[in-house]
């Protein structure tokens, strides 16, 4: 992360999100910090329940469940988003920051055509005529690789395949040329072949639109293929962060290492059984006092159980929340280099 830029595109500092339960506040997201550079792709990785979607919703200002408390700081081009008046936040949403969702089946309003819904977003942010909006809609749909975009624009969501719908979703998100695109598991609900196409599309956005992408996923393979840098979340806290190639080569956190071990290797002999991480992540309500990964960690010892470990720098832009490097016994670098073809 270049430090010379005075105002990075997105700067998240100490983001905490708490839900009220059992008479107290339960932290879903706990002091998460990260920075997104211009025209970069950041992968936000974690198991379900690790708080990655909630983080995205908080950046978008879409959390409005009663009692939820969001604190910390989210700066977009130097502008504080937490506590921004709804009217100003709304002007930002869809125009500067856009979001695409996991399930393209349910993300479109079923009673309007695809084109109508994209036009709506354009016309919500810019003063253009209906015809101009539609022309842009058709153009963007075409750019997103939608065949016969004019016809597709006149179709209803249920009439399209999942892949086409996700392309339309991305087209809608990009219709106002946002500088930041948040993609919340954009490929999870899709077939594997379609998945690869959509990932290609997301990667090409940087060149086409100059957009940065915050890609949320639980799939390390997707991260390796797509992202410049990686942020691993575990149980609402940052476990590790760094450039993708580096994180994959020499993971600093046992959780990251275990995640990488559970991916089938592309080269070399196939193991009989992939190693799995035993146990399940703790629920936000009964998180241990120390390292949240402690109960599942192979290297757990007394130092892990008292306080949550702080992020320890391991190299350029690379840090992990683990006591091992500080104690002088870092994890060994991984020998397998399976994904060097896609990592920058």
């Amino acid at each position: 992360m270049p430090a010379d830029r005075s105002a990075p595109l997105l700067d998240v500092r100490d983001l905490c999100i708490g839900f009220p339960a059992r008479g107290g506040m339960v932290p879903i997201v706990d002091h998460v910090s990260f920075t997104m550079p211009e025209a970069g792709i950041l992968g936000l990785v974690g198991e379900s329940g690790s708080g990655k979607s909630v983080t995205a919703m908080a950046i978008m200002g879409l959390i409005d469940a009663p009692g939820v408390r969001v604190s910390g700081s989210v700066r977009f081009r130097g502008r504080e988003l937490i506590g921004l008046p709804p009217r100003q936040m709304r002007r930002l949403r869809g125009r500067d920051i856009a979001m695409i969702f996991q399930d393209p089946m349910t993300a479109f309003t079923p009673v309007y055509t695809i084109g109508w819904q994209i036009d709506e977003q354009i016309r919500a942010h810019e003063r253009v005529t209906r015809a101009q909006a539609r022309a842009r809609t058709v153009r963007i749909l075409g750019e997103m690789g939608v065949p016969d975009p004019e016809r597709v624009a006149r179709r209803y969501p249920h009439q399209l395949s999942g892949g086409l719908r996700q392309r339309a979703m991305i087209a809608m998100a990009l219709s106002c040329n946002p500088t930041l695109l948040i993609a919340d598991e954009p490929t999870t609900a899709l077939d594997v072949t379609v998945q690869a196409q959509i990932l290609d599309l997301i990667r090409s956005l940087r060149g086409m639109h100059g957009s940065s992408v915050l890609l949320i996923t639980h799939d390390m393979g997707v991260v390796a293929q797509t992202c410049d840098s990686t942020l691993v979340l575990y149980s609402g806290r940052v476990a590790e962060t760094g450039p993708t190639a580096r994180v994959f080569d020499r993971p600093g956190h046992p959780y990251t290492a275990a995640l990488l071990d559970s991916i089938p290797p592309l080269y070399g002999p196939r193991p009989d059984r992939l190693p799995a991480i035993s146990g399940t992540p703790p629920t936000p309500m009964d998180r241990p006092a120390g390292c949240a990964f402690g109960p599942r960690c192979a290297h757990v010892h007394a130092a892990c159980t008292t306080t949550p470990p702080a992020l320890v720098p391991l190299g350029p832009d690379h840090a992990a929340a683990c006591v091992l490097p500080a104690e002088g016994t870092p994890l060994p670098p991984r020998i397998l280099r399976a994904s060097n073809d896609t990592c920058p």
Binding site: F101, F108, T109, A124
Partner: peptide, 11 residues
């Protein structure tokens, strides 16, 4: 979901 999309659109 589609109501969330509509909100994310900035309507």
């Amino acid at each position: 979901d589609f109501m969330r999309t509509a909100r994310a659109k900035g309507l």
